[in-house]
Each structure stands twice: as structure tokens, then as C-alpha cells.
């Protein structure tokens, strides 16, 4: 991450005699940075992926160089420094416990208090001669700019949402275009989030599958490949396909979107496998009730990762859909178990 103890090789921070060591960081990522990013996207060591809070230098900043504020999630830190190649500036990294700017601002850890105390701790007022901070726009839910100005004398400028727009923002004289201020939720944005939906869902699915296969030993009518496929397919539909296809599925509520896709999946599979024939009806009806409800529930959990759902909206969605999801799951589950344990097998 860091080049080295900066004072040994870059004069940049040596003129700064406030005696606190400032590290100069590179604007290019190493293979291990990229591997680290990939790992946390899949949930490995995600809550411990952080850098030391404090002041860092990019290039050879002096007392007039801009100060950019960010969070100590290493993924955030890496995206930010990568977008600053060729620039001379200061990075003030707040302690957000390794959480990204937006979520940390929502929790208040990327907040006015932490900013003010980190400024004092790093002696920022002696490092720079100007009195201006550039904050990421998504830090605004945690940082009251007028409070910061009152307490530190520093003027807060909210920069663009995305790090890749920072250079454009600075060259335009600290002006952000409308696009720079808007949060999106592109296919790519959703794709990088999907592993964190899929992995936890599978962590629950695998033991259940194992238990079901074990129960086949004493079942009157064991679960077969179609049943297993229907189940795992419903998990994938809710946790992977619904997030990816989000804008293209009818409805506004995530659970409705997930349910529609799950219903499409189960009905198609059962139709193709000729499971709506006599003798299979109880099991198939159980699956049509249970599996789309499961997809709906998993899809609803994606509200937490989305960039546009309000808590009031999610509450309303849940009040409407959770009773339906629960009823359908319980009924469907009972029908499946009855068919599993007591149903007559056609083949015998």
C-alpha cells in the first residue's frame, strides 16, 4: 500500500515540520491490492480490510494542495488513490472501522465528530495554509458542513459521488456536473454486490440440502434431482438473478420482483419436468408456494445493498410482503414434507 516512510525519499512532507509522519502513497495498485479487493467482494476478511486513519500524501503536496477526506476501508482508499494519479494532494482518512464512506456516514462514524478530532490529531491546520476540505458527497449524511466550519474554520466542499470524477471536479474549479452528483445503480454496480448476496444465501442452503438428502433415507418419496434443482434455482433466482435483472423485472417492491422471477423459474422447471401430472400435484403445489416465496425473501434482502430504497419504503414493502411470504412458505413447506414422508411413489 505505502511506498515507504516518505521522509526518507520524498521531500514532499519534509518541509512539513509539525513532526507527524506523513506517508506518501502510490496511485497505482499492486497485484495484492487487486487480490484483496476480489477477496472482500466475496466476503473474505471483509470487516478487517482497513488502512490506518490519518494524513497521507499523494504526489508532492505543499501547503496549498487540496485536502481530500475519505474512509479507512481499504477498498475505498484504493479506489480513491488510483483516481488521483498525477495529482499533488493530501488525504485525510477518517476512522470508520473499515466501512465505506456512505454506509459509515449513515451510521455516523464518518461524522462531524470524527472529522474534527482527526483534523486536530493530524495537525492539519499547520500542514496546509488554506482552509478548505473536499469531502465525498456521500459523506453528507454524516457530516454537517456548517458545523465543521464553525468548529474548525475549515470550509467544507462536497465533491462528486464517484472518485473517478474528482479530477474533473477540481479542474472545473470545484464544480460538479449533475451527473457527478447523482448515485446510479448500474449492472456493474449490482454485479459486484451479488457475491455478498449469494455466498451467505448458500451458507444456509447447503446444510439444508444436506439434511434433506439425509432425510431421503426414511422418506416414502425421496427428493430427486428436480426437487434439488428447483430449490437451489430459487436461491440463485432471489440472490443473483433478481439483483442483476432488477430494472427489467416488473414491479417496484424487491420482494415482488423476486417472487415473479422465482415463480417463472419453478413453473417452467416443473412444466418441463412434467411435474404437474397426477400423483405429483401435492409436491408441485408445495414447491410453487414455497420456492417463489424464498426467492422473494432473498430479493427483499437486496434492498440493503441498493442505492435508492428508503427505510419508510422498505418498511411498507415488508409489512405487505412478509405475511404473504411466511404463509406461503409454511403451507408449501407442510405440503412438501407430507409428500416427502408419506406420499406414494409412482415408480414402486
Amino acid at each position: 500500500m505505502s511506498e515507504s516512510n516518505c521522509c526518507a525519499e520524498t521531500p514532499a512532507c519534509c518541509w512539513y515540520t509539525a513532526a507527524k509522519e506523513v506517508q506518501t502513497v502510490s496511485t497505482t495498485l499492486t497485484t495484492s491490492d487487486m487480490l484483496g479487493a476480489w477477496k472482500v467482494r466475496w466476503g473474505f476478511g471483509r470487516m478487517e480490510y482497513m488502512v490506518e486513519p490519518g494524513l497521507y500524501a499523494i504526489g508532492s503536496p505543499d501547503g496549498n494542495a487540496p485536502v481530500l477526506v475519505s474512509a479507512n476501508y481499504k477498498l475505498t482508499f484504493d479506489v480513491l488513490r488510483q483516481s488521483l494519479s498525477g495529482m499533488d494532494c493530501w488525504l485525510l482518512i477518517l476512522d470508520t472501522d473499515g466501512v465505506n464512506v456512505w454506509c459509515a456516514a449513515g451510521k455516523g462514524t464518518f461524522g462531524t465528530e470524527e472529522l474534527v478530532s482527526r483534523m486536530t490529531q493530524t495537525g492539519l491546520a499547520e500542514v496546509v495554509t488554506h482552509r478548505q476540505l473536499i469531502l465525498p458527497q456521500l459523506g453528507a449524511p454524516g457530516i454537517a458542513s456548517h458545523e465543521v466550519a464553525k468548529r474548525t474554520g475549515f470550509n467544507v466542499i462536497f465533491g462528486p459521488v464517484r472518485a473517478r470524477d474528482i479530477k474533473g471536479f477540481i479542474t472545473a474549479g470545484y464544480q460538479a456536473t449533475r451527473e457527478m452528483r447523482m448515485v446510479e445503480f448500474t449492472f456493474w454496480d449490482r454485479l459486484v454486490l451479488v457475491p455478498m448476496e449469494f455466498v451467505p444465501a448458500m451458507q444456509i442452503t447447503m446444510p439444508i440440502l444436506g439434511a434433506l438428502l439425509l432425510s431421503n433415507q426414511f422418506a416414502a418419496r425421496p427428493f430427486d434431482k428436480v426437487d434439488i434443482t428447483a430449490y437451489t434455482g430459487a436461491v440463485v433466482t432471489g440472490s443473483v438473478l433478481t439483483p442483476l435483472l432488477l430494472p427489467y423485472i416488473p414491479g417496484k417492491a424487491f420482494s415482488l420482483k423476486g417472487w415473479l422471477l422465482g415463480l417463472g423459474w419453478v413453473v417452467s422447471l416443473l412444466t418441463l419436468s412434467r411435474r404437474f401430472a397426477k400423483g405429483n400435484l401435492l409436491r408441485s403445489a408445495g414447491q410453487v408456494l414455497l420456492f417463489p416465496a424464498l426467492s422473494a425473501y432473498l430479493a427483499m434482502n437486496f434492498t440493503g445493498s441498493s442505492t435508492y430504497t428508503s427505510p419508510s419504503g422498505v418498511k411498507k414493502e415488508m409489512e405487505r410482503s412478509l405475511p404473504l411470504i411466511c404463509t406461503a412458505s409454511i403451507l408449501g413447506g407442510i405440503m412438501l414434507l407430507v409428500s416427502h414422508l408419506f406420499g406414494r411413489s409412482k415408480k414402486q
Binding site: 440493503g304 427505510p311 419504503g313 422498505v314 418498511k315
Partner: peptide, 12 residues
């Protein structure tokens, strides 16, 4: 505004 997180898991 009654601010908070729009996350089903958080609300549950």
C-alpha cells in the same frame, strides 16, 4: 426527514 437505512435485514 426520518433518516435511516433502507435495508430489510436491518429492519428485521
Amino acid at each position: 426527514v426520518d433518516a435511516g437505512v433502507g435495508c430489510a435485514a436491518a429492519i428485521i
